[in-house]
Design a binder for these strands. Structure first.
Lengths: 362, 362
DNA sequence: TTGAAAGCGCTAACAA
DNA sequence: TTGTTAGCGCTTTCAA
């Protein structure tokens, strides 16, 4: 079947082949494929024609040897089961593709020390590295940076480190959530943490708690959910079994909030938004599904990605290394999983219902 | 802050640097980093020591120039929002990492013709290409194959093409679902297709319909959901608004089944598993969440990935190109979204509840 | 077991 | 604008 049309074509054509076919030098071929190089239009046309005929495409790895630019970016991820990441990866992939970069995937499931993956990362001459794994240490980031690879950490800030990072305003977001729940009349709060060692989790907890204390409330009853569904389910059971159970729970991310929502309803018979308010953080795509209707603080993924692209572009095209900690503001998206305050609700430009405090938070 | 400990280290160390430091030739360095090369133990130790001191790591791209092996695999995906893919990608990434390969990501959102992405793919000297996007044409696959890049298509078979593929037994799975629903006493069926042009969708529909007809039933009432949540929501509304509404709906994948479940309950007040049976296909991670409890035909992702690894290994280490269409059997995982038959239910070795027909299907 | 030498495919001075 | 030349960092014959 179709054996006749199979071309063996053992070795792909090289610039040498094209040069010969077009009757020019290899430099002319190279220049024809380089944006803004000085080639006569006629020459380029000849070359492109020959190239097409021979199915020639410049070998990027050979090019990278000369230019020391691979056009490949590494991206380190851990939990792809957390719905937040697929969306982020898709956006990053799209935006970087536009700029001529591809993403090389490194899935690091909870690696502690920097060493095992570091060798792997450095073997490929990555133009830059995006660390989007919350379990990855900033030591790894620094090692890469010291090896000359620009690094951007996504949603995983280490203020003590001078590695560039882009993140959401976790603390302000959590403060907004606290104010929102207070404005809705809640007085007994629960909090489900991710991992105590994790800064993102800490920042959100800190913002939430500080805002409650500032308003004269008690600190929230807390449990740790380990960023996993099962962990969050257990944390929810712990909180809801207390004699004085909370009537509002803030989960450090949506993934865990989904667990809380389901355990509350299925095991405790509590109606989210009525008997219990549940708020998450991330605004992952399925948060808007009718079964969840999760009220959650959205991460501005579009902006996060745009800034990441800009930062890496800057690191690649300027002399001095980028050392910046950027914070991007999200929005509290209001749905049905939490009771609504009577004031402060508005509609955003993209048609979502959101909430902001009447007066800016301290 | 910490400026003192920053090492500039402009250019990474090369084998030449290491050779000089260790007092050996560059060949000796190369051999020390090559599995099974003939080097004296003492020499290798010297080299490794010097390498460590200089932070040397072989440049994979330079190596690939000589060996014409990049150790990079391309993976083309479209819908990362479909929960099926993150799990697949994670498994592929893990298994291939073990074998020394990395995945380079190509997110193709519904590209029609082969050309735009083909150039991109071929610029990188990929050792092989995994096509896991259902919207990608087999023409693209053939173009890559003809360019000398082994291709494996995942869950996207084109029987007319001789490109290797690994897929689930879609037809048998759908037949099992039909039998399951029949055994549970259903007599009025609905079907939500993905895309009419898509073979996976067609195979599942064909298996479902043929089994119903074989049992003397009418063909299912059908609507097209375009593999999207909104599309499936609309398809569900269409089916449930009929005067003779179906009491069992098979959705071509889980992603759409979630939409059906929610529309049925939230907009039509139907209780899944009681008033209406809903069955999906894939068994994505969240199918087991309490709110869904989706009865669905599982894809054997572990096996799919294992076979993909094997196929690519084979294509890379043997002479003749691999041209195989592999089919792997899944299991109908029984949860609560569909009424259960009284017989045929059993527990699998990994503790899941599943169903098989009493006598094998024709 | 080791080193010398050639070359993988490309780009970038430099000179013409 | 073009071709010549010299590598980028590595592996791999081939001799020693």
């Amino acid at each position: 079947m179709g054996a006749a049309r199979r071309k063996p074509r053992r070795r792909p054509a090289t610039s040498h082949d094209v040069a010969r076919a077009a009757g020019v030098s290899r430099s002319a071929v190279s220049r024809s494929f380089t944006e803004g190089a000085s080639v006569a239009a006629a020459t380029r046309k000849k070359v492109l024609l020959a190239a097409r005929a021979l199915n020639y495409r410049p070998n990027l790895f050979a090019r990278s040897l000369k230019t020391s630019r691979s056009n490949i970016l590494g991206i380190a991820l851990s939990a792809l089961d957390n719905q937040y990441y697929p969306d982020l990866v898709q956006r990053l992939s799209e935006q970087f593709a536009k700029a001529g970069y591809r993403l090389l995937l490194f899935v690091t499931h909870g690696i502690a020390g920097p060493d095992p993956i570091l060798d792997e990362l450095l073997k490929y001459r990555l133009d830059a590295l995006i660390l989007a794994s919350s379990t990855v240490s900033s030591a790894l980031a620094e090692a890469c940076r010291d090896a000359g690879v620009p690094v951007v950490m996504l949603n995983n800030i280490d203020p003590a480190s001078d590695v560039a990072s882009v993140a959401t305003t976790n603390e302000a977001g959590a403060q907004t959530i606290a104010s929102f729940l207070l404005a809705a009349g809640h007085r007994r709060f629960g909090f489900i943490a991710g991992l105590d060692s994790e800064l993102t989790s800490y920042e959100r907890e800190s913002g939430f708690t500080s805002q409650l204390l500032k308003s004269g409330m008690a600190a929230p009853d807390r449990a740790v959910g380990h960023f996993s569904f099962e962990g969050a389910a257990n944390a929810t059971r712990t909180l809801l079994k207390r004699k004085q159970r909370p009537d509002a729970i803030f989960c450090v991310n949506d993934h865990m909030a989904f667990a809380t929502l389901q355990i509350a309803r299925c095991e405790f018979g509590l109606e989210p938004g009525k008997d219990l308010s549940v708020v998450g953080f991330d605004n992952v795509p399925i948060a808007e599904w009718p079964f969840f209707g999760l009220t959650t603080y959205s991460q501005p993924n579009g902006q996060i990605v745009a800034r990441t692209v800009a930062l890496i572009h800057q690191a690649l095209h300027q002399q001095q290394p980028v050392t910046l900690h950027e914070r991007l503001r999200g929005e509290l998206v209001v749905r049905s999983s939490a009771r609504r305050p009577t004031t402060g609700i508005f509609t955003t430009t993209d048609g979502q219902t959101a909430w902001r405090p009447d007066k800016p938070l301290g």
